[in-house]
Amino acid sequence: MPVRRGHVAPQNTFLDTIIRKFEGQSRKFIIANARVENCAVIYCNDGFCELCGYSRAEVMQRPCTCDFLHGPRTQRRAAAQIAQALLGAEERKVEIAFYRKDGSCFLCLVDVVPVKNEDGAVIMFILNFEVVMEKDMVGSPAHDTNHRGPPTSWLAPGRAKTFRLKLPALLALTARESSVRSGGAGGAGAPGAVVVDVDLTPAAPSSESLALDEVTAMDNHVAGLGPAEERRALVGPGSPPRSAPGQLPSPRAHSLNPDASGSSCSLARTRSRESCASVRRASSADDIEAMRAGVLPPPPRHASTGAMHPLRSGLLNSTSDSDLVRYRTISKIPQITLNFVDLKGDPFLASPTSDREIIAPKIKERTHNVTEKVTQVLSLGADVLPEYKLQAPRIHRWTILHYSPFKAVWDWLILLLVIYTAVFTPYSAAFLLKETEEGPPATECGYACQPLAVVDLIVDIMFIVDILINFRTTYVNANEEVVSHPGRIAVHYFKGWFLIDMVAAIPFDLLI
């Protein structure tokens, strides 16, 4: 008679799926529990143990900040960024110097990925580790590398530091407007667009060049630039800015003055950032001319202004700041037409079709709590990747769950009947059967004279019903998954307890 339990259901295979997918890609990662103190490590794979030199037993239950890997060259700011990422709910990448158990130093890129439950609360953290440099290539500990984003994938490793954006290309926007319009339909740009040429040739750093990471940081200074100062900065030398009595002219307006920039070969870094931020506020060169004239017309309804409409929906549905990093990277690809469009465009503009998908598509409701890094690593669709929660398995109709209350009560009843059979069957065979043979035949009273025979008949009927119930009862397979398919249940029961239950259900007393 089957006594099969499996009270692990309803099970959740999400954690096993993450481990299996990460292991298949030869990654070095740990999984931490966000619900406990210090976000203790609950799993670390073999790749991480080989990377740091510690065994799994030495890593388990330690804080996922990996303070046991810190050393003299470990930056405090990087460690603080990892700790801050564990307090938030967004994906974050941090470069930090770690030390192995043998004392060797290596520069590592740590990717902190939160995993949320159905309520939107962070319950786990996945920390992925990628070695960037070994100890002989690690720089000085005073050099802070965590304020910069990861290198873009479309640049060669040897040319990542030679990417320079020439400031004269930004200063000569109005001069290039006529050349853009003359391109017409034969050019790649839309009317009114501004073409910015980027020099990728390796050259020595000069005062006129600005690194790509500095251009990325310009967006942080746009908020500090007032509207009046932006307007004066875009007017140009024809209309000098008016300053109040006793007030000095704005240095932001002076930063885009061609006369002032041409007199000296070098520009201050602050002026460069502010000038680029001011130019980015204009949607095209037409807006710059309109600002000089004193009238700013409404933005025209053409394809170039609607190019950012799908980007707005993608940004609203993005799951991490990696989408913004990807957008900034692609927006700086050289030799393309940049349409400086305000994100607050007309909502009635139709979304044009684009061959290049900048932001990841909208994630469906079932995966809105899973970050983009987890979705990318697992390579699963929205119909396959579940949320991290207890999910009731989908069972067929008329199927009994093996952990249901009805099955528990039924098993206790069958257990009592088995005990009765084990006690009274030998007793009936030894004593009652002998008395029946010696006594007179009682054929007239039937079952009324033999109450134990009636009980034995009921017990046999219950055993037959138990066999039928076992054909529709779920079970737990070797992978700790609840199986509810009727065919698989029948095959599993035939290979197991079916023969024993059938022999126990045969009414031998009635056959004798």
Rank of each mutant, 00 (worst) to 15 (best):
A40C: 11
N369A: 13
M124I: 06
L343S: 15
Q84H: 03
G6N: 15
I18Q: 06
L200Y: 15
E91A: 10
A34H: 05
S313L: 07
P241T: 13
G294D: 11
N117A: 14
S304H: 12
L165H: 14
P249F: 07
Q75G: 12
R159I: 06
E37H: 14
V132C: 15
A260E: 14
L165Q: 13
I336Q: 14
R271E: 15
S153P: 13
G139I: 06
D346S: 14
D219K: 15
L296R: 15
S322E: 13
A203T: 04
A244I: 04
C64M: 05
C66D: 01
T305M: 11
P10C: 10
C39K: 14
G238F: 04
E177N: 13
T162Q: 08
A211N: 15
N220E: 12
R35F: 15
G246W: 05
L311K: 12
T162M: 15
R148P: 12
T174F: 13
S104W: 01
L51N: 01
R366M: 15
F48D: 01
C276P: 11
A268N: 14
L171E: 12
G238E: 11
F22W: 13
R252V: 09
F22Q: 06
Y327C: 15
Y327L: 12
R271K: 09
L171R: 15
V8R: 11
F340E: 15
A223W: 05
R92H: 13
G6I: 07
E274Y: 03
K362N: 07
G71R: 01
R56S: 03
P72M: 03
P72G: 01
A169N: 15
P240L: 13
G314H: 06
L225G: 12
E91R: 14
S275D: 11
N339A: 05
C49H: 01
I30G: 01
G47Y: 06
R164G: 14
E118C: 06
S206A: 09
P168S: 15
A175G: 15
A211K: 15
L87Y: 14
P151C: 11
P114I: 01
P205Q: 12
P202G: 06
E90Q: 11
L170I: 11
G306S: 14
G306H: 14
T13Y: 13
H221D: 05
Y327F: 12
D355I: 12
G139S: 15
L167Y: 08
N128I: 09
L248M: 07
S182T: 10
A382L: 05
R73T: 11
T216I: 10
C39T: 06
L51T: 05
C52F: 13
T270A: 12
V194Q: 01
D119C: 06
A260Q: 11
P249W: 09
E274N: 04
D119E: 10
A185E: 12
V110H: 01
G184F: 11
S26P: 07
R301E: 14
R92C: 13
P240V: 12
A40I: 06
A244G: 09
T353M: 07
I82M: 08
R273Q: 08
A57Q: 15
T319P: 14
S209W: 13
S304P: 15
P361R: 15
N339L: 01
R148I: 07
G120N: 15
I31Q: 01
V196R: 01
A160G: 12
A83W: 14
L15T: 06
A190Q: 15
E58G: 01
G103M: 06
L155W: 15
N257K: 15
S55P: 06
G184T: 05
S209C: 01
I330T: 14
P352C: 07
G226V: 08
S354C: 15
E372K: 10
A97L: 14
Q376G: 08
F48E: 01
A277T: 14
D321Y: 09
P299I: 08
T329S: 13
S55C: 09
A244R: 12
V115S: 03
N117H: 09
A142C: 15
S206L: 09
A85Y: 01
S331H: 10
D342I: 02
R312G: 11
R92N: 15
E134T: 15
A268T: 11
R269N: 11
G186D: 10
E134M: 06
L109S: 15
E50F: 05
S266L: 11
R328N: 12
A253K: 15
Q75C: 14
V59R: 01
T329E: 07
V131A: 15
N128R: 06
S255Y: 05
V132T: 11
P361V: 04
A121Q: 12
G71W: 01
V41Y: 01
G226T: 07
G236P: 07
A277G: 08
N38L: 05
R273E: 09
L167E: 15
V115T: 05
I126P: 01
E50T: 13
G184A: 15
L316E: 13
A253I: 08
Q11D: 13
C108T: 11
N117L: 07
Q335C: 04
V113W: 15
M137A: 15
A32K: 01
S284F: 07
P298G: 12
V194I: 05
K364S: 11
